[in-house]
Computed example of a mutant assay.
Amino acid sequence: MTPTAASAAFDESAKTLAADAPFFIVMNAGSGRRQSDATRSVLERELGAVGRRFELRVVDDPRRLADVAREAAAAARKEGGVLVGAGGDGTLCTVAHAAHDAGCAFAVLPRGTFNYFSRDHGIPADLDRSTTLLLDARAFPVQVGFVNGRMFLVNASLGLYPRLLEDREIYKRQFGRSRLVALWSALSTMLKPHRHLRLHIDHEGSTTEIRSSTLFVGNNRLQMEQIGMPDEARALEQGLLVAIAPRPVGRLMHLWLSLHGAAGRLSDSDHVVSFTFEHITVTHPSKKRRLVKIATDGEIAKLQMPLEFRVSDKPLFLLKPEPAEAEANRS
């Protein structure tokens, strides 16, 4: 596969940070006060013990997360430091967006349920290990995607998938956060009535109309591998994104496709359309500038059509293990 212009632009060397670069850590308190206290304790033990300066900003109101992240990113850029996100993929994406805009290095302390972004880059889920990694890791360029002006690290979607996420949050509030609760919620949503979208997709000079319950755009190699799409996973390393759309099928077939994905066999199905791209524009056949629900890394927003999905022409510089170690850590 020929590298794209975007991937060629990412052929930059990893950056070694100054030995005294400070860390500006933004954490979403929605994960719980106990988790916030535990994170602070580990930071004081691992970073404080070696005299490394850090500042932890715990955000109690999720609506302020983006503003706090931008303030911390400005401080990191001014002082040659690192902006660190502590949380799940949604929190990490918001904080990463601020780092990307400010042009400062970014690091993560995984504190979520699935942690697709950190796992894909070989960052340990263990808080002690991921904190220790901050001290000597280099910053490597990694690919990010955008839909209109909204960044995503793992995936973006419209249609049924945002509904799955909304229902999952309801189940989590009732039964707690776990992968089993997320799976049960997904099965319940799949069995409810849903309508199919009619979309026009402009890609490389041609327009294709699709009917589907959802349009899913992936930017995570681990997630693509887990659902059984290895060729698409490799395309992500060439500066491309992956679009996936199930063909119009009934609820039971949707459930069957989901089980195929969970078993890592989605590419075996004839009921799924997929393609890779650098840039696509998605419109409704009526051409009306309507608002649609979009999910980016688990967070829901309303964006106005047309929707432009694209690979960013500027990488995010992420602190992560050296390539061989990162590959060994992926799980």
Results as ranks from 00 to 15, higher is better:
241 L>H: 03
328 A>S: 14
162 P>C: 06
186 A>H: 06
155 N>I: 03
105 A>L: 01
267 S>K: 11
115 N>Q: 01
247 R>Y: 07
110 P>R: 02
88 G>F: 01
96 A>C: 12
10 F>T: 05
223 Q>C: 04
233 A>V: 08
217 V>P: 03
112 G>P: 01
111 R>G: 04
183 L>F: 15
237 E>I: 07
275 F>L: 11
181 V>P: 11
34 R>T: 14
139 A>F: 05
292 V>M: 13
245 A>R: 07
296 T>H: 02
227 I>F: 14
92 L>Q: 04
318 L>F: 05
67 D>G: 08
82 V>T: 00
241 L>W: 05
198 R>L: 13
263 A>C: 14
86 A>T: 01
128 D>I: 12
274 S>F: 06
269 S>I: 04
201 I>A: 03
290 R>E: 15
203 H>L: 12
3 P>M: 11
232 E>D: 09
85 G>M: 08
223 Q>N: 10
215 L>C: 02
263 A>R: 15
164 L>M: 15
204 E>G: 10
171 Y>E: 14
239 G>I: 11
191 L>P: 10
201 I>T: 00
208 T>I: 14
191 L>A: 14
125 A>D: 15
322 E>W: 10
152 F>V: 00
166 E>K: 12
293 K>G: 04
28 N>R: 03
191 L>G: 11
112 G>Q: 02
270 D>C: 08
97 H>E: 13
291 L>K: 14
297 D>T: 07
310 R>E: 13
96 A>D: 05
326 A>F: 01
214 T>F: 10
51 G>Q: 05
186 A>W: 06
177 R>I: 11
74 A>D: 14
194 H>C: 13
268 D>Y: 12
166 E>D: 13
207 T>H: 07
158 L>P: 02
176 G>V: 04
257 L>F: 05
188 S>G: 11
17 L>D: 06
214 T>L: 12
25 I>Y: 03
293 K>F: 04
166 E>Q: 13
183 L>W: 13
322 E>S: 09
270 D>M: 11
239 G>A: 10
279 H>Y: 08
133 L>H: 07
206 S>Q: 15
208 T>S: 15
69 A>K: 03
175 F>Y: 15
34 R>F: 03
254 H>E: 13
275 F>D: 07
290 R>L: 15
303 L>N: 04
178 S>W: 04
173 R>C: 11
137 A>H: 04
245 A>P: 07
46 E>Q: 14
88 G>Q: 00
128 D>M: 06
183 L>K: 13
254 H>L: 14
225 E>P: 09
98 A>Y: 08
137 A>E: 02
111 R>K: 10
280 I>W: 01
73 A>C: 03
148 N>G: 02
49 A>M: 08
324 A>N: 09
87 G>H: 01
75 A>T: 05
232 E>C: 07
168 R>V: 01
1 M>G: 14
202 D>C: 12
18 A>T: 10
77 R>I: 09
193 P>C: 09
66 A>N: 08
116 Y>A: 09
282 V>L: 05
47 L>S: 04
198 R>T: 11
31 S>K: 15
16 T>H: 06
29 A>F: 00
282 V>T: 02
69 A>P: 02
52 R>F: 10
196 H>S: 14
228 G>W: 09
80 G>M: 09
45 R>E: 00
60 D>V: 12
45 R>H: 06
238 Q>I: 03
270 D>L: 12
156 A>N: 01
